[in-house]
């Protein structure tokens, strides 16, 4: 088990996983940041949160998605970002399962406002898709120990400068 956890290849495998996950979260945040009122409507449609929390969620969540996405792409605090994406994926999946359980016939609202989005009705396929992203998040969280990215590049540059007389 230790050998598997410490395998050096994880750093390289986690890189495309991080970039992909980062891209997904960054892209998903854009329409929500651009139109928080529409996103608030999407949140309300899931019929889970009390009225007092809907707008706060609609205002804050997209920015957390964006920051986590950028962190994953750049490799700065990527493990912390993986915590955030893991938490968000669990939250989204709970919301989806509850909506499916209630029999709500609605669009996901994941990458465009539900009112604009057609052909992306929530289903168990959506839950399966989110499960894939959740697994990727957990993989990055556990195995991306020495992330390749800006942070590594900066420390390498500093190391070189120190060595250069």
């Amino acid at each position: 088990m230790n050998r598997f956890i410490n395998w050096r290849g994880h750093g390289f495998l986690a890189l495309p996983a991080r970039w992909y996950l980062g891209w997904v979260f960054a892209v998903a945040s854009i329409h929500k940041i651009a139109d928080p009122a529409a996103f608030a409507m999407d949140v309300a449609t899931y019929d889970i949160l009390p009225l007092q929390l809907i707008n706060v969620m609609a205002i804050c969540l997209p920015w957390i998605e964006l920051v986590a996405g950028i962190a994953l792409i750049t490799g700065v605090k990527s493990r912390a970002a993986a915590w955030l994406t893991t938490g968000m994926m669990i939250m989204f999946m709970v919301a989806l399962v509850l909506a499916l359980h209630k029999g709500l016939d609605m669009s996901c609202g994941c990458f465009a406002s539900a009112s604009m989005e057609e052909g992306d009705e929530i289903s168990w396929k959506t839950v399966l898709r989110d499960s894939g992203w959740l697994l990727l998040s957990v993989y990055v969280l556990i195995f991306d120990k020495a992330p390749l990215g800006m942070r590594t590049a900066v420390s390498l540059l500093r190391h070189r400068k120190r060595k250069t007389p």
Binding site: P36, A37, A40, M41, A44, T45, D47, L51, Q52, I54, N55, V56, A58, I59, G103, L104, D105, M106
Partner: peptide
């Protein structure tokens, strides 16, 4: 300018077709 109030004043009128 088009910022949301932190707490919605009225219930959202969501239009979800009944099952």
């Amino acid at each position: 300018p088009a910022g949301l109030p932190f707490v919605a004043k009225e219930e959202y009128e969501t239009m979800v077709p009944c099952p």
